[in-house]
Design a protein around this nucleic acid. Structure first.
Lengths: 127, 127
DNA sequence: TTTAATATTGATAATTGTTATCATAATCAG
DNA sequence: CTGATTATGATAACAATTATCAATATTAAA
């Protein structure tokens, strides 16, 4: 896979993610893309998602259950609902403790800090 | 499963975790406990680990790959090596932004913040 | 100490999420 | 166009985890 070639499927997956505020799983992407490409394979979706992650065009969010994908690459945090598992963006600017911790931490080199907030989302709190 | 009954296997799993500084996966727990209980089943390990998590006696750490288990329940952060996947405790006290974010955040109620630091551990940096 | 109720186990099957394989189709430089 | 190579769809394989269930262990009460 030396040279990257265009593919309509990959383009569609990318566009789908860019239009989304939520953080769909591979399976959710698959279901939606299938409306446009009825024959697309789930493997193709997984393949392109990890390719896009490698290219830095999207990011993968690992939580309980299936991985989720986020086209917003700029650093931000996530809120995970403990009830329904939905993941929401936390766009509030928070200072990144990575550099600070790097000063007192001697067991490795920290490159990035990821914060996850856990709780109950408004929708679940109602029920 | 209304009333909890004692089990030697569960006790052993718990003790094993309490003695550990690292954060073994279910499979690593299984391999070790098998020295004491050669007939223990992997299902029993999984069952007891999730039970202990429910009881709040241990915590589950979800990262890439298999989940890991940590007997240290007091709040602290983790460092994840992007090369070898090992997980280390970051015991440096950091202020928890959960309450602060709760004030400006209106899409749910935040109960907890978990910070993960990603980078390369000393062992991998050498190679 | 026995008994009866029920929680736990070990063995194993089933599920879920993801990756690998491979023949065919699409892309694209020359 | 054509040839070289990448991407696809179909499907098998895989890894992590959960579910099922008959047999066993635990425990409260007789």
């Amino acid at each position: 896979m030396a040279v990257l070639k265009y593919s309509r499927q990959r383009e569609s997956i990318k566009n789908y993610l860019y239009d989304r505020e939520d953080h769909p799983t591979a399976d959710m992407v698959y279901s939606s893309i299938r409306e446009q490409f009825p024959n697309i394979s789930l493997g193709t979706v997984y393949r392109n998602l990890s390719l896009l992650v490698e290219l830095g065009e999207i990011q993968k969010i690992t939580t309980e259950g299936a991985d989720r994908f986020d086209a917003r690459v700029a650093p931000h945090s996530h809120f995970v609902c403990r009830q329904c598992g939905s993941v929401l963006d936390v766009m509030i600017p928070l200072d990144n403790p990575a550099e600070e911790v790097n000063r007192c931490w001697d067991q490795g080199e920290i490159e990035e800090c990821r914060m996850n907030f856990y709780g109950i989302c408004n929708h679940c709190k109602k029920n």
